[in-house]
Design a binder for these strands. Structure first.
Lengths: 336, 336
DNA sequence: GTATGTTACGCAAGCGCTTTCATTCTTGCC
DNA sequence: GGCAAGAATGAAAGCGCTTGCGTAACATAC
C-alpha cells in the first residue's frame, strides 16, 4: 500500500546516510550547514514525507495526544476539540479524536484505540468511562485529563469548570431583577456536571431565602426543553424565570413558552448555560454562562503535555472560570 | 514511551510463536481451534493491545482513511464527520480528522499529515486545496473524494449534492405562495457550491419570468446574514421573500429583519439551506433544504473504500439528493 | 610532527509487528 | 505399521525509521 519514497531514497539521492537525513528532519543539530541544506532541498525536490508509523515505532514515542468526546454533534465539543488540536500541534503532537456517542461500549473502543495508538495522553471529555479503563490507562502510564470527574492522581489531572460560580451569577442576577419564583430545567441525573449545577441552584436559592422549584426534567437537548417549556407555561403559580441546564434546553424552553403564548422575556425570563452559538443566534438571544470552552481544550493539551513529560508526574486540578453573558431572553420580573 | 506489552510477551506467556499470535489477532484462519482459544485468552488476561504503528509498518497498509474539513465548528460538518467515522470503522478502517479553518496553509498541513499517515484515502471536504496537493495525492495513489469540486478521474471520486434541485424547490415553493420579489443572500463567491446555488436561483427566477435580485453579499455566517437582513428591510421595493445561502445566514437575516421591525414570516418569508440544527431550533424555525449530510459522510467512506481496493480504480460521481423542509419562517406573500 | 579535542557523518541494531516459507504434527488410507 | 497429504506452527526477514556509538576529518596546542 505504500507507494511513497523512503528515507533511503532521499539519502541515496543526496549522497548521504539515512542517519544524516533523519538528523536533519529531526533538527538534532548534529548536521553541518552545507549537508543540512543539501538534504532539505533533496527532500523538497523528491517530495518526500516521513512515515509516521515507522517514526513512532523507531523512536518509541508516538508524540500523539488523544481526545475522547461524547458527541461531536453536541455544540459543546467542536470548539473544545479545535482548541485542543491547535494547542497539541503547537506543542508538536499529532492529535486523534474519538466520539463515543454516549455509548459505554464505544467509550471502551475509543480508549482501546488510544492504547493501540500508544498515545502519550488522552483528554477524556465524557463520563461514560469505566474505572477499569481508567486503571488500564494508568497502568500504561498514559496521562489523562478528565472534565469535572476524577480526583487528581499521578498521571491524572482534572479540569474543573466553575459551574457553581456560573449558577450563582445567574441566580443573583435574576434575584436582583426581581425574580422570586425561579424554575430549573435539569439534564441527566447521572452526569456529575449536571448535578453540580442543580445543587448549586438549590443552594443559591436557599441562601437568598427562596424556595427552589419547580424542578423539571430535561435531556440536555431541544426536545426536553420544549416539553419543559410547555409544562412551565401551565404551572401555577407560574415562575417568572426559568434556568435551563444548557443553551439547547433553553432554546427548547423558549420555543415551548412561545408556543404556549408566553412572551420571553416580558412574561418569563429564560437563561441557558455554556454559551454555545445557539445562545447568540436564538431569537431572542439567550442570557447564558460562558465556560470558556476554547480554554478547556488548550488547558487539556497543556496538562497532558506536562504530565507526559514530567519525570515524576503529579496530577493537578485546573480551574476554568465561568462568566455571565447577558442576552435578550431575560429581564425584570413582570409586576404582579 | 511505550510501556505496553509486545506480541512477544503474549507469545511467551501462551507458549507459542509470535507468528501464531499475529495470525490469531488477524483472523487468518491458519491457527487451530485449541491454540486460537489459548492465545485469545492470554491476550485478554494480559490486557494486550497491538501497536498500530508496528502493525501498519509491517503490513505496509495503514488501513486508515482521512477526512479534511474546513471548520469543525461549522454545523455542517460534525454530522458528516460522524457518519464518515462510523462507516470507516464498519469497513475496518481507522479514521483521522483534520480541520483547516479555511486556511490554505493549514490545508497543506492537513494533506501532508494524510501522506505522513499513509492513508489509503482522504475525503476532502474543503475547497482551499491546491491543484499541486491534489496531484501529490494522486501520485501516491491515495484515493480522494471531493465535494462538488473535481471531475472524476482514476483515484478521485466526487460527491455531488443536488444543490440545483434544492434551490429549484425553494423558488417554486415561494412562487406558489405568491412571492414575486425574492432576494438572495450569497456566500463566498469563490466557493463553487455557493455559485451553483446562486446561479440556480437566477435561472429558476428567469424560468418563472421573474427578475432576480436584489442579491446581497454574505459570508456564510451569522454576521453576514444580519447585515443583509438589515439592508433588505430598507430595500425598496421591499422583497417579500429572502433566500439565504445557508441556515446560519438565514438566522442572521431573520435577526436583522426583526431588528428592523419586519415580522417573519408575515411581512417577509426567509429560507435557509443545509438543514442544520439552527433551522429547527431557530425562532421561528426555518424553511430549509436537507442535503442529507449523514449520507455524505457514509458515501465518502464507501467511495474511498471502493477506490482503494479496486485493482484498476475508476472514479465515480455520487449524487446526493436535496429535500425541501418546511418551517415557520416562510408563508404566503403579504397582500399589497 | 604528534597528541588532543571537536565536529560531522555513517554503520548497524532494533522498535513491534506481519508474512513467507520451511518444518513439524496429524490424520486417513492402503 | 508406514506413508503421503494436509493442517498447524515456528524461524527469520524486513517494513521505514531513530539512535548509540564509532570513525574520519579537521583544527588547535604543544
Amino acid at each position: 500500500m505504500n507507494h511513497g519514497l523512503t528515507i533511503r531514497d532521499v539519502a541515496k539521492a543526496a549522497g548521504v546516510s539515512t542517519a544524516t537525513v533523519s538528523n536533519v528532519l529531526n533538527k538534532t543539530g548534529k548536521v553541518g550547514r552545507r549537508t543540512h541544506a543539501l538534504v532539505l532541498s533533496t527532500v523538497k525536490r523528491l517530495g518526500y514525507f516521513p512515515n509516521v508509523h515507522a517514526r513512532h515505532l523507531a523512536s518509541r514515542d508516538s508524540r500523539t495526544l488523544g481526545i475522547i468526546v461524547s458527541d461531536i454533534e453536541n455544540p459543546f465539543f467542536p470548539e473544545v476539540i479545535k482548541s485542543f488540536e491547535i494547542r497539541a500541534r503547537q506543542l508538536g503532537y499529532d492529535a486523534i479524536l474519538s466520539d463515543t456517542n454516549y455509548d459505554p461500549r464505544r467509550t471502551r473502543d475509543a480508549a482501546e484505540r488510544m492504547m493501540e495508538h500508544n498515545v502519550r495522553g488522552v483528554a477524556v471529555m465524557t463520563s461514560e468511562i469505566s474505572l477499569r479503563l481508567i486503571h488500564e490507562l494508568a497502568r500504561r502510564r498514559i496521562a489523562v485529563t478528565f472534565l469535572d470527574l476524577a480526583p487528581v492522581r499521578g498521571y491524572m489531572s482534572n479540569l474543573r469548570i466553575d459551574y457553581f460560580s456560573g449558577v450563582e451569577q445567574i441566580v443573583k442576577y435574576l434575584y436582583k431583577n426581581g425574580h422570586r419564583r425561579i424554575a430549573f430545567v435539569a439534564g441527566r441525573p447521572k452526569l456529575k456536571s449536571n448535578n453540580v449545577r442543580l445543587e448549586g441552584y438549590e443552594k443559591c436559592m436557599r441562601d437568598l431565602g427562596l424556595e427552589p422549584g419547580p424542578i423539571l426534567r430535561g435531556d440536555l437537548r431541544f426536545e426536553g426543553g420544549l416539553a419543559a417549556g410547555l409544562a412551565i407555561a401551565k404551572h401555577s403559580p407560574r415562575p417568572t424565570a426559568v434556568m435551563a441546564i444548557n443553551d439547547l434546553t433553553a432554546v427548547g424552553v423558549i420555543k415551548g413558552l412561545l408556543r404556549a403564548g408566553c412572551r420571553v422575556p416580558q412574561d418569563i425570563s429564560v437563561t441557558g448555560f455554556d454559551k454555545t452559538r445557539f445562545a447568540e443566534y436564538s431569537n431572542p438571544s439567550i442570557t447564558t454562562v460562558d465556560i470558556h470552552r476554547d480554554m478547556l481544550g488548550k488547558l487539556a493539551a497543556d496538562a497532558l503535555h506536562e504530565l507526559s513529560c514530567a519525570a515524576d508526574p503529579h496530577g493537578r486540578e485546573y480551574q476554568v472560570p465561568a462568566e455571565l453573558i447577558l442576552g435578550d431572553s431575560s429581564g425584570p420580573a413582570p409586576v404582579e
